[in-house]
């Protein structure tokens, strides 16, 4: 799994490549812990993530809780259909702003 970051409008975009599971989720967790020291809106670019295991989805929810506490927004961008479906039937989906692509970030309202 590869992680990089960029800035788009007022969003911190974290680009992830590869699958997120129990082997890689702690790496993602550590990375996010470093980056999230202030109330920034965070977008996770998941276009290059083909699979997320149960542990991967839990990392997302933990991140959501952290960002929510700081009063900022969290968006998931480019979620693969199968991951989105798994998230829907297991209840993870309801927590997130889900956007099809990075362009949508411009129009997204932080308060939604």
């Amino acid at each position: 799994m590869q992680i990089s970051k960029s800035q788009l409008h007022d969003w911190l975009v974290i680009h992830i490549e590869g699958q997120v599971d129990s082997k890689t989720s702690s790496k993602l967790n550590d990375y996010l812990a470093q980056e999230l020291d202030n109330a920034t809106n965070v977008a996770l670019d998941l276009r290059q993530v083909p699979f997320m295991s149960s542990a991967g989805l839990r990392t997302l929810l933990l991140l959501y809780r952290r960002v929510e506490t700081s009063g900022a927004a969290l968006a998931l961008v480019g979620l693969a259909a199968e991951i989105a479906d798994t998230m829907k039937v297991t209840g993870f989906y309801d927590f997130f702003i889900v956007l099809p692509d990075l362009d949508s970030l411009q129009t997204s309202n932080k308060s939604t």
């Binding site: 295991s53 149960s54 479906d85 798994t86 039937v89 297991t90 209840g91 993870f92």
Partner: peptide, 19 residues
């Protein structure tokens, strides 16, 4: 009985059902 049984997420799926 879980749509997510193949990824071992039946526990979450069943809890989501109850919720």
């Amino acid at each position: 009985y879980a749509a997510t049984g193949k990824s071992g997420m039946q526990v979450d799926e069943f809890k989501q059902l109850v919720k």
